[in-house]
């Protein structure tokens, strides 16, 4: 992947003198011309409790809150990253996983480029409902790039959903198999990787389309 080290978006982030990485520093990315910058809207979908908010927080803030808290409605965070030397603003939308939001539909997902379907590898149920999330939400699935993220890989001993490679073909068409990953929002395993990968896949796909 092109992007090695991305940084959190904290306004007062006093970037220490990173000589080699200077090109990718926050200020650098920010100051890149707005025209060149791409906006990538990513939505996180999945059953409640699979860890969508935690994933987002881990990626953007590198934090994990052990607090057990349901998401209200929806929330989003942005992060500026370089993907293949292209400055990209990732706008990550975290949604509430309650069933009632399954009817939200287009109003919420309009303009999204990529949709990350999150499930809990320790809960087969959450994996089963990924399909319904995908189908219930998205009216034009072809406009989206889907990736599958299996969260909570840190508690593997309870694992119910086996190998993502094995289950993937069972899934649905349209999911970017190669960018689907097993992650852990708790200890950060593969989180950055997964999001970068997701962004790159989406950008490539967009390029192909255009």
């Amino acid at each position: 992947m092109g992007c090695g080290n991305s940084q959190e978006e904290v306004p007062k982030a006093s970037a220490p003198n990173l000589l080699e990485k200077a090109d990718y520093s926050e200020s650098y990315i920010r100051n890149k011309s707005v025209i060149n910058r791409k906006l990538l809207k990513v939505i996180l979908l999945g059953d409640s409790g699979v860890g969508k908010s935690s994933l987002m927080n881990q990626y953007v803030h590198q934090q994990f809150a052990a607090e057990y808290k349901a998401t209200i409605g929806a929330d989003f965070l942005t992060k500026h990253v370089m993907i293949d030397n292209v400055p990209v603003t990732m706008q990550i939308w975290d949604t509430a996983g309650q069933e009632r939001f399954q009817s939200l539909g287009v109003a919420f997902y309009r303009g999204a480029d990529c949709c990350a379907l999150v499930f809990d590898i320790n809960s087969e149920k959450s994996f089963d409902s990924v399909t319904s999330w995908k189908e219930a939400q998205i009216q034009n699935p072809h406009d989206f790039c889907f990736v599958l993220l299996g969260n909570k890989v840190d508690i593997e001993n309870q694992r119910q959903v086996l190998k993502i490679q094995r289950v993937n073909p069972l899934m649905m068409s349209g999911v970017q198999k190669e960018s689907s990953q097993l992650v852990s929002a708790k200890n950060g395993t593969c989180v950055v990787d997964a999001f970068d990968c997701l962004a790159a896949t989406t950008l490539n796909r967009d390029d192909l389309v255009s």
Partner: peptide
């Protein structure tokens, strides 16, 4: 607070079809 977040919209929702109203009011 958790119960309220997950339960509230089942009991109280706006009549308008606009789902954004439900979200903006969700807090």
């Amino acid at each position: 607070s958790n119960i309220a977040i997950v339960f509230g919209p089942n009991l109280l929702r706006p009549k308008a079809d606009d789902p954004m109203k439900g979200i903006t009011d969700s807090a």
